[in-house]
Design a protein around this nucleic acid. Structure first.
Length: 556
RNA sequence: GCCCCUGUAGCUCAGCUGGAUAGAGCGAAGGACUUCUAAUCCUUAGGUCACAGGUUCGAAUCCUGUCAGGGGUGCCA
């Protein structure tokens, strides 16, 4: 259950009651908002609905607030509901209700934080989708962490989530890559040939060529360049993809599907979408190329779908058919793409294309993650293998660890450019919030271990949990479903990261002020109750960390 | 030129679907371990929310303009 939703319902009913009884005028529907006041003296939740209604009802906010207040019932939830100037209604949760929720959380177990969704959507989320031309670079880590966490959040929101990696195994970049690789292969065989115009740089290519040569030896040398590439490419793709999969799996990123761009071309799907666009009169031939007439729909410019030179499709071309396929063939209700900031220009083009195909563009959400600057203390890092500076995700993980890495990416909103301080990430100390959160979980586990060894059980009466830091901890614990819901609505994973940190702070406070396992006489009942709070807290930490794709260590 | 993102404490960032006294971590200064994990806790200091207008009962939040930083603006992906 989500407490804020319940409060909204109470207010809605009270408002309707006062309107039916004629105490308040009937006005058109307004969106009731319940928020957490900054100041704890203002209660646990508040609504500003009287202030909003004041204008349309032409009454003073305080008067409206009083009328609504009269119809509100404290019930089991609240110890206090009060009207405050200039027109807020503040709700304070009752200790009884807070206490009882501890048991509810324990009963929910690992399902706590999952939201029962009455209208779940089929959501496809596509992220990373880097060209399979080598190992993943640190620049791609942010999208990977963001995407995988967002997928977890949506799943917790009760949606059916399909995680997908679009393998760009066709197209110009791949051709250039294969030509460079072929060149290195020939070099490896000791034959002199001309360098391709655009040579993919990096030692990776050379070592890959070596691996290939060890396997295929001189066989490809007897073929034409194109035949040799055709011969080698399946092996190369598989080799690189398995590398990428390994890296992502290490980073805690799993996919349901690896979708090949090439299949769009081979199955004729691409051609059929071009035809569809043509049917909508959104296609033209110009300068030997095929163009999408975005300008007809209001776009700033038209875009090429099929190149004039080799007649091959552009990235945008295949991507349109890929997206058409997501919406029309596979019928996803919602599609989420996570792209790097360099894809910015692609967004409006894609939306126009979807619009042109008659697809509601609200079904397509594109999240752009901004650039990451890596630095070490004061020093900004330019990635360079030669200088021994980290450049691949594998390096990053082995240097700072998966959990630290994930948390740092998650604790920034995706739309802001961020600094990733490697020296801070590596520190296993209080400077690093990652360990602060995990430590809280480990501490709870330590308490439970100690309880077990002493034969103590979590079977106390929760009404004994009246200490201020106990109540405050419970308040935070019950927020989890609201946070999951909000993150899911906004498609913003960072709220979870901040929640985890706040939770840890309140847990530490509780730990400091409320000794759980007490040897004092007459305190066994309290110990048994506090052990319940410990379990409820542990469940909450574990869930939060699970959503973020981080470990919940029992020992540190 | 045009489009997008960002500008909040010394640093890194939350808060931005308008609400009550603007928050956190780090860093700085000081303090707390006969205790279930001190990877912890408690104090204190630190702000013209880039700037200027506007809308509003009310603006860090919305609108307009300016400035600064970054990104994009391929028949690359």
């Amino acid at each position: 259950m989500i407490i804020t939703e319940d409060i909204k319902k109470f207010i809605t009913i009270a408002l309707r009651d006062s309107q039916l009884s004629g105490e308040l005028p009937r006005v058109s529907f307004v969106d009731i908002r319940v928020e957490k006041p900054r100041n704890i003296e203002h209660g646990d939740f508040s609504t500003n609905i009287p202030l909003i209604l004041a204008r349309v009802m032409n009454m003073s906010p305080m008067e409206i607030a009083e009328k609504i207040h009269k119809k509100l019932d404290n019930g089991i939830f609240f110890s206090k509901i009060e009207v405050v100037n200039p027109g807020f209604i503040n709700f304070t949760l009752s200790n009884e209700w807070l206490q009882s929720s501890v048991e509810e959380i324990i009963n929910s177990g690992e399902k706590y934080g999952d939201i029962e969704n009455l209208s779940p959507k089929n959501i496809q989320i596509e992220f990373v989708s880097v060209n399979p031309t080598g190992p993943l670079h640190v620049g791609h880590a942010r999208g990977a962490v963001l995407g995988s966490t967002l997928a977890n959040i949506l799943e917790a929101n009760g949606h059916n989530v399909h995680r997908e990696y679009y393998v760009n195994d066709a197209g110009n970049q791949m051709r250039l890559f294969f030509e460079s690789l072929y060149f290195r292969y020939i070099q490896e065989a000791g034959v002199e040939i001309d360098e391709p115009d655009e040579l993919y740089a990096g030692g990776y290519l050379i070592s890959l060529a070596k691996t290939l040569y060890n396997r295929f030896s001189n066989i490809p040398l007897g073929m034409s360049k194109d035949d040799a590439i055709d011969y080698l490419s399946p092996f190369v793709l598989e080799f690189i993809l398995s590398d990428i999969k390994k890296t992502l799996s290490k980073l805690g990123v799993k996919y349901d599907e690896w979708f090949s761009e090439k299949t769009l071309l081979e199955t004729g799907y691409f051609d059929s979408v071009i035809k569809l666009l043509d049917d909508h009169q959104l296609i033209t031939q110009k300068d030997g190329a095929i163009w999408f007439l975005g300008t007809k729909l209001g776009a700033g410019e038209d875009t090429v779908l099929v190149r004039s030179g080799d007649g091959g499709p552009t990235y945008f071309g295949t991507d349109i058919s890929y997206h058409h396929q997501k919406f029309v063939k596979r019928k996803f209700d919602q599609v989420i793409d996570i792209w790097g900031a360099d894809h910015h220009a692609h967004i409006s083009r894609m939306k126009y294309a979807m619009e042109g195909l008659g697809i509601d563009t609200n079904r397509l959400k594109i999240i752009l993650n901004q650039i990451v600057h890596f630095k070490s203390g004061e020093e900004t890092l330019k990635f360079s293998k030669r200088k021994g500076v980290i450049s691949t995700i594998d390096d990053l993980i082995s240097e700072v660890g998966v959990d630290s890495c994930r948390y740092i990416f998650l604790s920034r909103s995706s739309e802001s450019q961020m600094d990733f301080d490697l020296s801070l990430a590596k520190k296993q100390s209080s400077e690093n919030p990652v360990f602060y959160i995990q430590y809280a979980h480990a501490r709870l586990c330590a308490i439970q271990r100690s309880a077990i060894s002493k034969g103590l059980r979590a079977n106390g009466d929760v009404s004994l949990l009246n200490h201020k830091s106990e109540i405050n901890l419970i308040r935070k614990i019950i927020e989890l479903p609201s946070v999951v819901a909000y993150s899911g609505e906004q498609l913003e994973p960072h709220h979870i990261a901040y929640y985890a940190f706040d939770l840890a702070r309140l847990l530490q406070k509780f730990y400091e002020e409320c000794r759980v396992i007490s040897v004092e006489k007459g305190s066994s009942e309290l110990t048994a109750s506090r052990l319940k709070l410990v379990e409820a807290s542990r469940i909450t930490f574990a869930k939060t960390l699970l959503i973020m794709g981080m470990n919940a260590p029992e020992n540190m």
